[in-house]
Design a protein around this nucleic acid. Structure first.
Lengths: 329, 329
DNA sequence: CTGAAAGCGCTTACAG
DNA sequence: CTGAAAGCGCTTACAG
């Protein structure tokens, strides 16, 4: 049903040369007479020849394949990040093997093995994974906003400055009772620096810092219940700094559900600033991560590890954040 | 810096057997004495052996790799679809090579060649592409909501019923001047059936059908301008059926910008019902596509083409839609 | 039950 | 400037 693919020897036969010569023409290596080159090109065109990258990679020990592990592209933050990373990979001639781990350790382990079997040149990881430490030593790796192990460089936004800026923005807008919602502190993620930044500013202004921990593994319904409980426990709350836009949107929903108004009664600021949220919920004030630049850095640092393994790496590549004003503050 | 990978001959040496035997143990083929099997397993474990799928694929002429071409995962609809498709692929042992074509014909052409070079077993295409017709004949292909060429099966939601349901929902809610916003009619996409369904219902009720075409290639700013123009030209408009949720959200923004209310002054219904929108903008009434089932069908039909090429294919696999009630109607 | 040999499609020293 | 040979890591007839 599907046509047989011509191989290099077919091209060689058609052009009346050896496979070696065809290979050299394709790879533009060594000296080739113009006449031979043309014959080979003609034969390739005529046969509609497409080289087999599997065979090439096998010999070259370089697949130009990279693994990308994210929780899920269904989340617009990771969907956008994935698109940006894939974009810069494509520019660099790298192909992306996509893995949605759903924060499931077992799935992540399977994906890691799959990636190694497929001889990927490196991996970009956007999830937290305990079992990663050993396996990653065997492969160039870049982590996105998560500390994995000492040797793995981390790409992140300036979470501390982001936390400071969020708190300062709410305080300047007149908030007195500001609550910060974040993931659990045990996970040593850079995102926890947002908390530190927030708490530092609160202290500086002599205001009480209140950080509510919501486990990100919670289902949507559970997250909503947790936010509901927060409102019950903090009736005088007039400002919320949510650790991501998704939570911020849920907080806004809850404010409205209680027949209060944003920003008059409760001011809300988020974190991330994905394109989708900025386009479709422009009223949300948020701290924007420079996603494009971060994706570019991630790809670039991965390539550096692959091509210049001797070159020293920073522990962390921090990118500056930016306040995007909607009208939720 | 990174450890050398052991190969099958290293395992064979460590276990005191031939490479053939190791291969047979790995693939559970042929008869192997329990003792030998155990020796091999021990050696594999000791060396931390991981097979090289590149070499396997090369010999087997089956890579278990598939290509997925979407406009961009930054759009939550495609982000979610990508996640669902990857999920079902992983269950079936297929690995996904991700391609974000950004509706760019040149990029798509490059991605197609890249996928063929990498010997993918098949491709799932979620974009409209003219140049596809020839190339797809050479590879199992499934199209998502787009007619590509006669031989390629299409996975879609019941767009016609969706259009009918959207129109009927607005009419029942009392709308008299309902506008439908859709992509250009020239593109023969199943999405145009939404328009047909809408127009049929309007006619049935003796109401004027008004379809506004917005090119999806428009930038966000241009889309907003187009929506703005629509409001200017249709001051008595009291209902909008948007061809996707993204447009619907923009319409709602425009209604508010004009100090009108949804649903009191203008009722709005969208199409898609992605998880993100349902979770974060639950007020939007929309026609939900059964994304999970559609992803499952896409993967299943692709596998059928790969493994049972002789088995007949339907032209189209239509999935029933569902009304999700928010309070925008 | 086990192994030597050939081959998947490509590339690269090494001769000429 | 060009080609024969060996090898990338694996698998599968074919012998034994």
């Amino acid at each position: 049903m599907f046509k047989i693919k011509p191989k290099i020897s077919d091209v060689a036969k058609a052009a009346g040369v050896s496979p070696t010569t065809v290979s050299r023409v394709m790879n533009k290596r060594g000296y080739i007479s113009e006449e031979t080159r043309q014959k080979v090109y003609d034969a390739m065109k005529k046969l509609n020849y497409i080289p087999n990258d599997l065979a090439r990679s096998l010999y070259n020990k370089r697949s130009n394949l990279i693994g990308l592990i994210v929780p899920t592209t269904a989340n617009p933050f990771y969907g956008e990040l994935t698109a940006r990373i894939e974009h810069f990979c494509a520019l660099a001639g790298l192909k992306v093997l996509l893995c949605n781990s759903l924060h499931n350790a077992e799935k992540e382990a399977h994906y890691w093995e799959m990636l190694r079997r497929n001889q990927v040149d490196g991996v970009i990881v956007c999830t937290y994974n305990r079992g990663l430490i050993d396996v990653s030593e065997q492969m160039p790796t870049v982590a996105f906003d998560h500390y994995l192990s000492s040797g793995i460089p981390v790409i992140s936004s300036d979470n501390y400055a982001g936390g400071e800026l969020a708190a300062a923005t709410l305080i300047e807008a007149g908030c007195k009772n500001i609550v910060h919602i974040n993931g659990p502190a045990e996970l040593e993620t850079p995102a926890n620096l947002r908390r530190n930044g927030y708490e530092a500013v609160m202290q500086r202004y002599g205001l009480p810092a209140m950080t509510y921990e919501i486990r990100s593994v919670l289902s949507q319904a559970e997250a909503e219940a947790a936010i509901c409980a927060l409102f019950d426990q903090q009736p005088q709350m007039d400002g919320v700094f949510a650790s991501d836009d998704s939570i911020a949107l849920k907080v806004i929903q809850e404010v409205r559900r209680r027949n209060k108004r944003v920003p008059e009664d409760v001011k809300v600021i988020g974190y991330d600033g994905t394109e989708f949220v900025r386009q479709h919920v422009p009223e949300l004030t948020t701290i924007k991560q420079p996603m494009i630049t971060m994706a570019e850095t991630a790809v670039q640092i991965l390539i550096q590890q692959i091509e210049q393994p001797e070159k020293a790496l920073e522990k962390e590549y921090v990118h500056s954040i930016e306040l995007v004003r909607g009208n939720s503050v």
